[in-house]
Design a protein around this nucleic acid. Structure first.
Lengths: 260, 260
DNA sequence: CAGTGGTCTAGACCACACT
DNA sequence: GTGTGGTCTAGACCACTGC
């Protein structure tokens, strides 16, 4: 029995089906089904999903097969296994993985500085997406986007100037006030308030010289080179959900990358 | 039977033992044993290792346990599985993973540009390690190191200026001529000629302005910000084997990073 | 065809967390 | 103790490669 799921002779399985991609190993099909449930919000960030045995019964496969599916999702940081407790939906609010996507670290061994010390929202408004913004977010030119500009400081030194764009529809109701009063990772706010979980991201990094307005916002002397970091963050199903353009000071910090 | 390997009642196993770390799951112990064989050069890069069944017999465990050990090594890019053919020792000479550690890509969709078009060795000499070089390579200040400076060009545009330092002992006999005449990834040369395989690396990235000599080597106009990329590359057992300081032009290229 | 890695199963037992 | 994930085994069968 290696055709599809569920088998045609057992249509009573609790899982519907529909969109299952072609032929693939059983555990890949299970992985897709779990992914669908995650995307549909059946299990929310930080909640636990059913036990391996429960899922095995639900999908009518062995525990080992469910296990392999969960293994892959866990290695992609979509789920977190905790021995003796259960398997949980990953969240950016967890202390261990907070600011997972922020690769800027202090030169000194102050550890990860536990995220930015101070944050200031400079601007937050809705506008029509320009061509390049629309393309990055897979929208149509002219669709409404939310644009946010903010400055992050470490030890009272302005270090990051960030512009970010979010599609207007999923983030309806997001305001400067809401952003300012929230303490913790922005991506955690997105999860709890808008049901949007960022799963992975891509960054393009360059060295640039800031223009005058950028230099002033970061209170920089002239001729200070900065790291330009353009990020596109994706939710489930590789849907782009955020474009972020950051300028990083790198005189006391550096962008850290592990190559495997 | 979950104590150590091999069990005390079966000392006839073909594997010696000695340095096995404390208590750990069986598959972790197998992983360590395979790692030792890799490090000792029992199986060389691009060669195949014994089949899962052979290894299972050799270590007196089940195939599934060997499998899990190999899985982890494969996910760390130390081994490569090929269905129907066998499991192979990874190498930087493989087309698929050539220039795995070079994250600079062209802005245009010219794909990965297949590595640098031109390479020029500017300098190559042996000298005493300064304090910071020695620390990075876990040597003593004053130990001999090999220092190489080179320029990489894409489409005849000098794009990367790179200084790199290698510990003198393992790389005895490496000369500018040998480097110049070799076509292909430098890390592949290290494997075949010196038995040194780079397994992972860490990079610290900053934005800088080049000094006069650097600017001239890259034929840059004044005030061109560059990406400063400092890399420490490690062989098996997390031994640092190379320090590399690169300056990247980022007007037509960018440093690409995937965040998971 | 034989040999390799890849999938799937079923069952046993271990390690850990909660209560 | 009960329930969870983690390890280990043994055996069956599938998918791919090359002779």
């Amino acid at each position: 029995m290696n055709t599809s799921l569920p088998p045609t002779d057992a249509p009573a399985a609790a899982e519907s089906l529909a969109a299952i991609a072609a032929f693939s190993p059983l555990y890949q099909q299970i992985k897709s089904l779990i992914l669908q449930s995650l995307q549909a919000g059946e299990w929310k960030p930080s909640e636990s999903i059913p036990s391996e045995m429960d899922l095995a019964l639900r999908y009518r496969v062995s525990q080992g097969t469910v296990r392999k599916a969960i293994d892959e999702l866990a290695s992609g940081h979509l789920l977190i296994r905790k021995q003796g407790k259960g398997t949980f939906v990953a969240t950016h609010a967890e202390h261990q993985v907070q600011y997972r996507f922020l690769k800027l670290v202090a030169d000194q061994g102050d550890l990860n500085t536990e995220g930015p010390a101070q944050r200031e929202i400079v601007d937050c408004k809705r506008l029509r997406a320009s061509a390049d913004i629309a393309r990055a977010l897979a929208l149509r030119s002219g669709d409404t986007v939310l644009q946010v500009r903010r400055v992050l400081s470490f030890a009272n030194v302005p270090t990051i100037l960030e512009d970010l764009w979010l599609p207007g529809t999923p983030f309806k109701g997001l305001t400067a006030e809401r952003l300012a009063e929230y303490h913790g990772p922005m991506y955690a706010l997105f999860e709890t308030e808008f049901g949007v979980r960022m799963v992975r991201a891509e960054e393009k990094i360059r060295a640039v010289l800031p223009d005058k307005s950028q230099r002033e916002l970061l209170q920089l002397p002239p001729n200070t080179p900065l790291l330009s970091v353009e990020r596109i963050a994706y939710t489930y199903k590789d849907t782009p959900m955020e474009l972020r353009r950051g300028l990083y000071r790198t005189d006391k910090h550096h962008y850290h990358n592990d190559l495997n």
